[in-house]
Design a protein around this nucleic acid. Structure first.
Lengths: 339, 339
DNA sequence: AACGCTAATCTAAACGTTTCGATCATGTCA
DNA sequence: TGACATGATCGAAACGTTTAGATTAGCGTT
């Protein structure tokens, strides 16, 4: 900018005024300056600007795994929204690891991001501390956090799983396996609650051996399914509370020589683009990813626009059960799915 | 830092020296400073540091669509690699749009990223200019670019498609539909060349009506497939040069009342996590996503480590044909796939 | 002609670091 | 004991912006 100012024989203040439109500058100086900018190929240094202004027009986004199709879609939507608003987004994947997450959030705050969208991991103690003394707005995505009182957009997980399990119960299933991630994050906790509630509402007992915990990965779903299917009194249906784990479930069913939906019904949380085209077409709980991403972005953008003191807003969205052909009436051997 | 210095009754220079280990500071001052840092909860401002140092420890990454499973995986790998190296990554999705891409690259350069990994879009003219006068290292991912002479890691696309088409030919297919994206990016160009080469090598004619162009999206694959299948002399096999488009292909096959692989064989470029578990299990060309991501990251990290003047390095990786059960011998009606 | 008002421009300080060179003890050696 | 190297610490400039406040010029009023 100094060079531009010299070339145009004006002060840097005038150059700045012209670029930002913060003051009127006369036509002849404008022209000289614009010419100089072109000649020199000047680009404003956003870092220097950020230092002075105290704002980077950059936000941080952390998710557990970008390869989980739910997060893939949500990240995509959020990225687009901030792109439209002229913000850059720094993406971090925490790999479901608490320490990684803390490091990454610190890294983002060091870089002075203007705001944070986080799909947290692990217990919320450190996150709470970070959120408290970083004074940037934070919106919680997908996973709320005890004691961290900030904007959030989450699904009504309990209701969604309740509906799905009730659907299976109505198909006649009595022993329904349930594969979940660790319960220390709210969606897993709430989904489990939905499972229990549905069984309870139907007057069915809760068989603890049908509830298996994994670490969100395919292999965990595989192992959990293997264990359940090897028992003498195996479930007639399995619900996986997480999408990557259901791949493991399907592989286990195949490897053990059974097939879905003939021998066992399967449903899972989180829809994916292929679910319509391949067999079995998996019955899933679809989250409104577009809405979730947009709402999260809007909440943050609103804070960034200056609305700092409004009380925390919690958005609760509804899931939708996508009924396809991976679940059959219990005991049915015919092709038809009619209950 | 000023506050820390005051609290510890030292100069800011000493604080900086201690934090960065750039000079020895006596035990008692060290202790006083560390205490002050803890008391105040001081965090170094990475923006100010970047301004002074001329480096942000941040890189920019642009891809067409993060929801394309190939890019999902590669982004994930790259993100992890830079995370390990202490870099942040700014992610942009260009949506296959040239203007968007240019804007985003400019945005990234304004923010003084230390390097750029780009899976480009459109013609390379502007990209070339940007790369030339931004003096940050750039590595091209997946798509090389005429005239832009810089590090790159790409697949041997021609060979990969040659192998896939040859496989179909060996199954007895003579009329093989080919669905591709626009040819202005190198992978699409090279894959098409592989298609033509394979037909040519087998002495088969190239039927131009069997070659359809789309814009990488599911709907394009759907329309292209619909057109081909509606013709009186439809192909017995279809190869889709892009993964999202194959979903459209499968939907079109279903909607038109045919089935795969009984009536028509299908294969496509880019593997995806579900391909093993659902029917038909799609035969695909798998890219070594892990290697691609790591190599791209390594090339850039090497430049960032100071190796600026080495000549451009082009890495050519090999694809792998994952043969599953979505392709049958032409005319076969039995279950077995034995050619 | 003196005055005030407005619009255009400039000067200089500030943002929070890093780092060069200067300063100042302290101990070593002739 | 004086000269000198050594090691620790500091002062101040610099990175490239923004912006508050000062300055200047131009113009209409009285």
């Amino acid at each position: 900018m100094l060079h531009v100012a010299e070339a145009a024989r004006v002060s840097v203040a005038t150059v700045s005024a012209l670029i930002n439109g913060t003051a009127t500058v006369s036509p002849e100086l404008s022209q000289r300056i614009e010419q100089a900018i072109r000649d020199i190929g000047y680009k404003r240094n956003a870092i220097a600007r950020s230092l002075k202004m105290g704002t980077t027009r950059t936000i941080g986004l952390t998710v557990p795994h970008i390869t989980n199709p739910f997060f893939t879609d949500v990240v995509s939507v959020i990225q687009q929204a901030f792109d439209r608003a002229g913000y850059a987004v720094m993406l971090c994947c925490t790999d479901e690891d608490l320490n990684t997450q803390d490091d990454q959030i610190r890294l983002l705050l060091d870089r002075m991001v203007d705001g944070l969208i986080v799909a947290r991991v692990g217990d919320g103690a450190i996150l709470k501390r970070i959120v408290d003394d970083a004074n940037v707005p934070v919106v919680l995505l997908d996973r709320i956090c005890e004691g961290v009182d900030t904007d959030a957009v989450v699904l009504d997980n309990q209701r969604a799983v309740f509906d799905a399990i009730t659907y299976l119960i109505n198909l006649g299933h009595r022993r329904i396996g349930y594969i979940t991630g660790t319960s220390d994050i709210s969606p897993m906790h709430d989904r489990m609650a939905g499972y229990r509630e549905a069984l309870h509402a139907a007057g069915l007992p809760i068989a603890e051996e049908l509830i298996r915990f994994g670490n969100f990965h395919e292999i965990d779903g595989y192992n959990a399914t293997m264990q359940m299917l090897s028992s003498h009194d195996r479930p007639s249906a399995i619900f996986s509370a997480n999408n990557p784990m259901v791949i493991g479930t399907m592989k286990a069913i195949r490897d053990i020589g059974l097939s879905c939906p003939e021998d066992i019904s399967v449903a899972c949380f989180d829809d994916f683009p292929w679910s319509d085209v391949f067999q079995p077409q998996l019955t899933t709980v679809a989250q409104p990813v577009q809405a979730i991403g947009e709402q999260a972005a809007n909440l943050l953008l609103d804070r960034l626009a200056g609305n700092r003191d409004a009380p925390p807003r919690k958005l609760l969205l509804k899931g939708r059960l996508m009924i396809r052909n991976s679940c059959r009436p219990h005991g049915a051997t015919v092709q038809s799915v009619s209950a």
